[in-house]
């Protein structure tokens, strides 16, 4: 292989992670930015390329593995977390990435996502949220706005939407973050942190579907609005935002509210972000900051440590061997009592 030498020195470029398959997303799709950012982020790491596996379900974003020059498995609708789980259980060395969407991960595969997170399976899950079904041509998704007009809801969706990060918190995911297709730098930082995290990493990525739900996030992330409607979370710091960095968040009982920094005095009343807050109600509170009432937080909502499922699974094998000795097939077959026929 021509790349053998390169593999050995483990210095990569984005091209090393680009497969020979033609990318077939619609022109202007937010997935292009996500793909490029993932490829660039991986290239910065000294992890052998063959150790990456990308596993996806069904949907536009789930074509992702075909475009990555790594191991990949484009599976079936909603089931990517299960396949990744099996792979992870038997191979502790791989860097495993699950690519899913709002329909794949939160609707048809909602059950798997929940259980994968509660087990703290050591996986990186990227949930590409465009609030619409793209591949099936424009039906509402579990994250679509209430009242959204789509091909399957001509009079407006009567489903109430689900908040992906709330699901992650309720499932006790140990790493929870949100980023967006329009800010590759922030996305790369979040992806790197997700990758470095041991345990399940859940990242919601706001992604624009240019065909069926164009500008869905524009009111928050658009050029004119983002300064006042987005908060970038920074660990250990107050939640400051605004064009002139003049606004922050404080808690009024259990409710976050916006304050002018000028009025905040010495800042003691301000909400300070702690990724490792032990109480899940803190990140939950952040997820309740939604447009239009509140600015929307981006960044790392939660990052805590807890033993991973795969670690404990392997540990039980080790412990069992220590207690009973390496399995002896003859002993197993013979069992506890036998008799002889002569």
């Amino acid at each position: 292989m021509s790349s053998t030498f390169k593999d050995l020195d483990l210095s990569y470029t984005k091209d090393d992670f680009t497969s020979n398959q033609e990318v077939r997303w619609c022109p202007g799709c937010g997935d292009y930015a996500i793909l490029a950012t993932v490829q660039r982020t991986l290239a910065k790491n000294a992890i052998p390329r063959e150790n990456y596996v990308f596993i996806s379900g069904i949907g536009c974003s789930s074509r992702f593995p075909y475009y990555m020059n790594t191991y990949g498995f484009h599976t079936i609708h909603g089931r990517a977390p299960t396949i990744a789980t099996g792979l992870r259980c038997v191979n502790p060395d791989l860097s495993i990435w699950v690519i899913t969407g709002d329909g794949d991960g939160l609707s048809i595969g909602g059950n798997h996502l929940v259980h994968c997170m509660r087990r703290n399976m050591n996986l990186n899950i990227l949930l590409v949220n465009n609030q619409i079904y793209g591949l099936t041509k424009g039906q509402y998704s579990p994250t679509s706005r209430h009242g959204q007009i789509t091909n399957s809801s001509p009079m407006g969706a009567i489903d109430y939407p689900i908040n992906a990060l709330c699901i992650a918190i309720a499932s006790e995911a140990t790493f929870i973050a949100r980023t967006l297709d329009g800010d590759p730098k922030h996305m790369s930082m979040v992806l790197q942190r997700a990758m470095d995290h041991k345990g399940v990493s859940f990242v919601e990525i706001y992604q624009n579907c240019i065909i069926f739900n164009d500008k869905a996030f524009q009111p928050v992330t658009g050029r004119d609005s983002r300064d006042d409607r987005m908060i970038y979370l920074e660990d250990g710091k107050p939640l400051v935002f605004g064009k002139h960095k003049d606004k922050a968040i404080r808690l009024n009982r259990l409710k976050p509210e916006v304050v002018d920094l000028q009025d905040a005095g010495d800042g003691e009343s301000l909400l300070i972000h702690h990724e490792d807050h032990p109480d899940p109600s803190y990140p939950y509170l952040l997820t309740q900051m939604t447009y239009p009432e509140m600015p929307v937080p981006f960044g790392i909502f939660r990052a805590i440590q807890r033993p991973t499922y795969d670690e404990m699974l392997n540990d039980q094998v080790v412990k069992s061997k220590a207690a009973k000795g390496e399995g002896d097939l003859k002993k197993l077959i013979y069992g506890t009592s036998t008799w002889t026929v002569k």
Partner: peptide
């Protein structure tokens, strides 16, 4: 190494 491939 070198056998990276995609299935589905």
């Amino acid at each position: 190494p070198g056998l990276e491939h995609r299935i589905g």
